Amino acid sequence: MQNMMQATTIALVDDHPLALHGLKLVLAKVAGTRIVGAFEHPRGLLALLRTTPIDVVILDYALGVTEPPTVELIRKIHLEYPARIVVYSAMQGTFIQRACLDQGAFRFVQKRQSLEDLVGAVRACMEAGRRFIG
Protein backbone atom coordinates (compact mmCIF):
# COMPACT_ATOMS: atom_id res chain seq x y z
CA MET A 1 0.00 0.00 0.00
CA GLN A 2 1.15 3.53 -0.73
CA ASN A 3 2.84 5.45 2.05
CA MET A 4 0.10 7.52 3.67
CA MET A 5 2.50 10.46 4.12
CA GLN A 6 2.97 10.79 0.37
CA ALA A 7 0.17 12.41 -1.64
CA THR A 8 -1.52 10.36 -4.35
CA THR A 9 -0.63 11.98 -7.67
CA ILE A 10 -3.43 12.49 -10.17
CA ALA A 11 -3.41 13.42 -13.85
CA LEU A 12 -6.57 14.44 -15.73
CA VAL A 13 -7.51 14.25 -19.40
CA ASP A 14 -10.70 15.81 -20.78
CA ASP A 15 -11.04 17.64 -24.09
CA HIS A 16 -13.56 20.10 -22.64
CA PRO A 17 -11.71 22.94 -20.86
CA LEU A 18 -14.61 23.70 -18.51
CA ALA A 19 -14.97 20.04 -17.45
CA LEU A 20 -11.21 19.81 -16.97
CA HIS A 21 -11.21 22.93 -14.81
CA GLY A 22 -14.11 21.60 -12.73
CA LEU A 23 -12.38 18.25 -12.20
CA LYS A 24 -9.24 20.05 -11.03
CA LEU A 25 -11.22 22.13 -8.53
CA VAL A 26 -13.11 19.15 -7.11
CA LEU A 27 -10.20 16.74 -6.91
CA ALA A 28 -7.75 19.28 -5.50
CA LYS A 29 -9.90 19.24 -2.36
CA VAL A 30 -9.60 15.48 -1.83
CA ALA A 31 -7.35 14.90 1.16
CA GLY A 32 -4.14 13.10 0.34
CA THR A 33 -4.11 13.95 -3.36
CA ARG A 34 -2.10 16.24 -5.59
CA ILE A 35 -3.02 17.15 -9.19
CA VAL A 36 0.19 16.97 -11.23
CA GLY A 37 -1.21 17.41 -14.72
CA ALA A 38 -4.38 18.36 -16.59
CA PHE A 39 -4.56 17.90 -20.34
CA GLU A 40 -7.01 18.40 -23.18
CA HIS A 41 -5.19 15.82 -25.33
CA PRO A 42 -3.65 12.45 -24.42
CA ARG A 43 -0.25 13.51 -25.85
CA GLY A 44 0.35 15.66 -22.78
CA LEU A 45 -0.55 12.81 -20.45
CA LEU A 46 1.75 10.36 -22.23
CA ALA A 47 4.64 12.84 -22.06
CA LEU A 48 4.06 13.30 -18.33
CA LEU A 49 3.83 9.56 -17.69
CA ARG A 50 7.26 9.08 -19.29
CA THR A 51 8.88 11.38 -16.74
CA THR A 52 6.68 11.43 -13.65
CA PRO A 53 5.19 8.64 -11.55
CA ILE A 54 1.40 9.04 -11.59
CA ASP A 55 -0.84 7.08 -9.22
CA VAL A 56 -4.25 7.81 -10.77
CA VAL A 57 -5.26 8.90 -14.27
CA ILE A 58 -8.79 10.23 -14.74
CA LEU A 59 -9.60 9.93 -18.40
CA ASP A 60 -12.63 11.13 -20.34
CA TYR A 61 -13.79 8.37 -22.70
CA ALA A 62 -14.86 10.58 -25.62
CA LEU A 63 -11.83 12.79 -26.16
CA GLY A 64 -12.72 14.00 -29.62
CA VAL A 65 -9.41 12.73 -31.02
CA THR A 66 -8.89 9.70 -33.20
CA GLU A 67 -5.32 8.86 -32.21
CA PRO A 68 -5.02 6.89 -30.13
CA PRO A 69 -8.52 5.47 -29.67
CA THR A 70 -9.45 5.60 -25.99
CA VAL A 71 -9.47 1.85 -25.40
CA GLU A 72 -5.99 1.60 -26.92
CA LEU A 73 -4.83 4.48 -24.72
CA ILE A 74 -6.20 2.69 -21.65
CA ARG A 75 -4.39 -0.49 -22.65
CA LYS A 76 -1.12 1.36 -23.25
CA ILE A 77 -1.25 3.11 -19.88
CA HIS A 78 -2.23 -0.11 -18.11
CA LEU A 79 0.60 -2.13 -19.66
CA GLU A 80 3.38 0.46 -19.56
CA TYR A 81 2.80 2.58 -16.45
CA PRO A 82 1.89 1.85 -12.83
CA ALA A 83 -1.10 4.22 -12.80
CA ARG A 84 -4.65 3.23 -11.95
CA ILE A 85 -7.15 4.48 -14.54
CA VAL A 86 -10.58 5.91 -13.82
CA VAL A 87 -12.63 6.47 -16.96
CA TYR A 88 -15.04 9.37 -16.51
CA SER A 89 -17.55 9.64 -19.32
CA ALA A 90 -20.95 10.79 -20.53
CA MET A 91 -21.03 7.67 -22.70
CA GLN A 92 -23.37 5.01 -21.45
CA GLY A 93 -23.71 1.33 -22.10
CA THR A 94 -22.24 -1.78 -20.68
CA PHE A 95 -20.30 -2.48 -23.89
CA ILE A 96 -18.21 0.70 -23.46
CA GLN A 97 -17.74 0.14 -19.75
CA ARG A 98 -16.70 -3.49 -20.27
CA ALA A 99 -14.26 -2.53 -23.06
CA CYS A 100 -12.57 0.01 -20.77
CA LEU A 101 -12.37 -2.39 -17.84
CA ASP A 102 -11.13 -5.22 -20.06
CA GLN A 103 -8.28 -3.02 -21.31
CA GLY A 104 -7.14 -2.14 -17.80
CA ALA A 105 -9.30 0.65 -16.39
CA PHE A 106 -9.72 0.32 -12.63
CA ARG A 107 -13.11 2.07 -12.46
CA PHE A 108 -15.70 3.54 -14.85
CA VAL A 109 -17.77 6.50 -13.63
CA GLN A 110 -20.49 8.10 -15.73
CA LYS A 111 -20.64 11.89 -15.75
CA ARG A 112 -24.30 11.72 -14.76
CA GLN A 113 -23.27 10.10 -11.47
CA SER A 114 -22.51 12.26 -8.44
CA LEU A 115 -19.15 13.86 -7.76
CA GLU A 116 -19.05 11.66 -4.68
CA ASP A 117 -18.98 8.63 -6.97
CA LEU A 118 -15.95 10.03 -8.78
CA VAL A 119 -14.22 10.87 -5.50
CA GLY A 120 -15.07 7.35 -4.30
CA ALA A 121 -13.40 5.89 -7.39
CA VAL A 122 -10.27 7.96 -6.67
CA ARG A 123 -10.30 6.81 -3.05
CA ALA A 124 -10.63 3.18 -4.20
CA CYS A 125 -7.51 3.70 -6.32
CA MET A 126 -5.71 5.20 -3.32
CA GLU A 127 -6.69 2.27 -1.11
CA ALA A 128 -5.61 -0.26 -3.73
CA GLY A 129 -2.16 1.30 -3.75
CA ARG A 130 0.20 1.68 -6.63
CA ARG A 131 0.61 -1.12 -9.13
CA PHE A 132 4.14 -2.40 -9.57
CA ILE A 133 5.45 -2.99 -13.05
CA GLY A 134 8.78 -4.78 -13.07
Rank of each mutant, 00 (worst) to 15 (best):
T94P: 09
R98K: 12
R84D: 06
A105L: 11
L79D: 10
Q113V: 01
A90K: 09
E116D: 12
A83R: 09
I74R: 03
L101F: 00
G104E: 12
Q92D: 12
A90V: 05
A105H: 12
Q92M: 13
A99H: 06
E116V: 07
S89G: 03
L115D: 14
T94I: 09
F95W: 13
K76G: 04
V87Q: 02
Q92S: 14
I85G: 04
D117H: 11
Y88G: 01
L79K: 06
E80I: 08
E80H: 08
E80C: 07
E80Q: 08
L79C: 07
R107K: 13
I96G: 03
G104M: 13
D117T: 14
L115T: 12
E80P: 00
F95K: 15
Q92I: 11
S89I: 07
I74T: 08
A90W: 04
V86E: 00
P82N: 08
L79Y: 07
Q110R: 09
M91T: 09
L79G: 02
L79I: 09
I74L: 03
R75D: 15
V87P: 00
Q113R: 04
E80V: 06
E80N: 05
M91N: 03
R112Q: 08
V87C: 01
H78S: 15
F106N: 07
Y81K: 02
A99K: 06
V109A: 07
I85Y: 02
R98E: 13
S89T: 13
Y81I: 08
C100D: 09
I85A: 02
C100S: 14
F95D: 14
L115C: 09
R84G: 05
I74K: 03
D102N: 13
I77L: 08
I74S: 07
V109R: 07
F108K: 09
K111I: 02
T94G: 12
S114N: 04
Q110Y: 02
C100P: 05
E116N: 08
F95A: 15
L101K: 01
L118K: 03
F108D: 11
K111V: 01
V86K: 00
L73I: 03
Q103E: 15
Q97R: 15
A105D: 13
G104F: 11
L115R: 12
Q113D: 04
I96P: 03
K76I: 12
M91H: 04
K76H: 14
S114P: 15
K76D: 08
V86S: 01
R107C: 02
D102E: 15
D102K: 09
Q113N: 05
F95L: 15
V119M: 10
R75P: 00
F95V: 15
I85F: 00
R84H: 15
Q97L: 02
P82T: 09
Q110T: 07
M91F: 07
S89K: 01
V119E: 04
I96Q: 13
L101C: 03
R112H: 10
R112I: 05
C100W: 05
L115E: 11
I77E: 05
V86G: 01
R107A: 07
L118A: 02
S89C: 06
Q92F: 08
A99Y: 01
V119T: 08
G104R: 04
L73Y: 04
I85P: 06
A90P: 03
A90S: 12
F95Q: 15
T94K: 11
R84W: 11
